[in-house]
Structure formats: structure tokens, C-alpha cells
Amino acid sequence: MTIEKTMSPYAIRQAIRHGDFTGNTSGMAQGFVQCNLAILPADWAGDFLQFCQMNPKPCPIVGMSAKPGDFQLQALGQDIDIRTDIPKYRVFKDGQYVEEVTDISAQWRDDFVVFALGCSFSFEEALIADGLEVRNITEKVNVPMYRTNLACQTAGRFSGSMVVSMRPMKPADAIRAIQICSRFPSVHGAPVHFGSPEQIGIRDIHSPDYGDAVTIKEGEVPVFWACGVTPQVALEQAKPPVCITHSPGHMLITDLPNSRLAVL
């Protein structure tokens, strides 16, 4: 089956569910919200919810399961099955990454609570519509992501430092990106930093911790946004007995229009 980026969110989810697509979702289903994923046992969900509420830049909540064990996020789209409709998942046990899979039906538990968190892929189209280049889309790779020294607010058992995504831009374009992304607080909002990566603890901009390196041209500066991989760092440190996340760059594509999240 040929997968086109212009397919509807429902059609793309169906292709993912049937194993026809396992790639990163940047630039797909333009116009619709994409979400990061975190799944936890119910007795850990309260602390994680508080962590997200106290750290809305990297962890903006777009949706949650209605009750423990509910794998159909009806408020986010038609016939969503969170066990099958993300291209790749990462499974952690006691804070340790153990495997990457394309289906979590075998791992599903009746006490799991699902968190769908806003993703920067949703504002990329607003940048492109304004004439700004998004380098990871131009180069057809996953966006580069980095661990930083920017501390998150601690909540219960959860703490950690922010992960950021990076897109290189000319300084004037970076300022314009700040203006554009400030309208989208539910998908990370304005950048948290631009310029020297060393100031936020990134030693080598050409070696991302997640995703792929992209070209930084002469006269450009790296621009950094809070990233939804941040909860994975917090989960690693909190060490719940089991948790499941999206694999970086492999998102849940919802039926929600990006325009619904914009603040005018």
C-alpha cells in the first residue's frame, strides 16, 4: 500500500494499524494535530498528570483515556486504537528501555492510563505556510532532539530535564517563528532557546540524542522547542514498573484540526 502524506488521519491510522507504515510522521496529514504518547499504570497516573500540568511547555495534555484500560481515545478521532495506531512504540520496565514494537496489544493491561501530549509537528505546517523552511521536512528525516540542562518542575515521583527539538533558521526567521508558535501553546508554543546550544547543555549539535542530524547552513542559528520526548526522561528517572511511549518522531495522528489549538 502506498502511503501519501495527504491521506486523511483515519486512512493513515488504518495503514499503521495494518502494518503498512512504520516511519516517522513529520509532515503527514497536514492540518491535523499529532500527539506524543505516554501510558502508565493507574497508580502512577496521578503523579504524571501533575507533572504535565506543572510543565506545560514540554508536556501539554491534548487528551487522556476516559478510564483505566480504555484504549479508544474517542475525543481525538474516529476508531482510534492506541494499541495499534502509532507507527512505533517504546516499552520501558523499571525505567529501562527494553524494546521497540509496532503493536502493544500483547502488553496491554486493564489498569493502563493513556496520555496524549501535544507535538511540535503540529506547528511545523504553520511555519511552512508563512514561508519558513523546516529543515527536517526538506531533508526528509526525523527532527533532531537533544537532552538539555533545563530542569522541569518536580511532581510526586516525576522529575527530570527538558528534551528539545531543533530547527535551524536565520535569526530574522527565528524571531518570526517565535511569533507564529506563540499561538500554539497546546503544541509546545514558542521556542525555549535559540543560539548557543552549549548554554542549555548540548555539547554537540551535530549528534542529536534522538532523531536525525540536519544541515545547519552558514548564517543560521539553531532554534529549540520544548519536546514531547521530555516525559520519557522523567519516566526513566521515576522508574515505574512498566510504561509505554511513542518512539521519537512516530506520533499519534488525530482528527483534531490544528486550527482548534491556535490562540488568536
Rank of each mutant, 00 (worst) to 15 (best):
G195L: 03
K217D: 14
S196I: 08
I202E: 00
P197C: 04
S207Y: 06
G211W: 04
V192Q: 09
I205M: 05
I180E: 06
D212F: 02
I200K: 08
V192L: 09
T215V: 03
G189W: 15
D212G: 04
H206M: 08
G189M: 10
I200Q: 09
H193K: 04
F184N: 12
A190Y: 14
E218W: 12
C181T: 12
S186E: 15
P222S: 08
E218A: 15
I180A: 15
T215M: 02
A190D: 11
Q179T: 10
E198C: 03
E220R: 00
K217V: 03
G201M: 09
E198P: 01
V221E: 05
V221C: 05
E220N: 00
H206N: 07
V214M: 09
P208N: 09
I200F: 10
G219H: 00
D209I: 06
G219C: 00
E220L: 01
Q199N: 09
I180G: 11
D204E: 11
I205G: 02
I178D: 12
I180W: 15
E218V: 13
S186G: 09
G201P: 11
C181F: 06
I200W: 10
G219Y: 00
P191I: 05
D204H: 12
V192G: 06
S196V: 05
I202P: 01
C181I: 05
P208C: 09
F194A: 02
H188K: 13
S182D: 13
D209M: 07
S182T: 14
Q199M: 06
D204M: 05
R183Q: 13
H206C: 04
E198M: 07
Y210Q: 13
R203P: 02
P185M: 09
P222F: 02
G189Y: 12
T215Q: 04
R183I: 09
D212W: 06
S182F: 12
K217W: 14
S196H: 13
D209A: 13
V214Y: 09
A190F: 11
D212Y: 04
H188N: 14
R203H: 11
R183T: 15
S186H: 14
G219S: 00
I216N: 02
G211A: 12
G219I: 01
G195K: 00
I216G: 00
F184T: 04
F194L: 05
T215S: 03
P222G: 01
P197D: 03
V214C: 13
H193F: 01
P208D: 05
I205E: 01
P222N: 05
P191S: 08
I202G: 02
H206S: 10
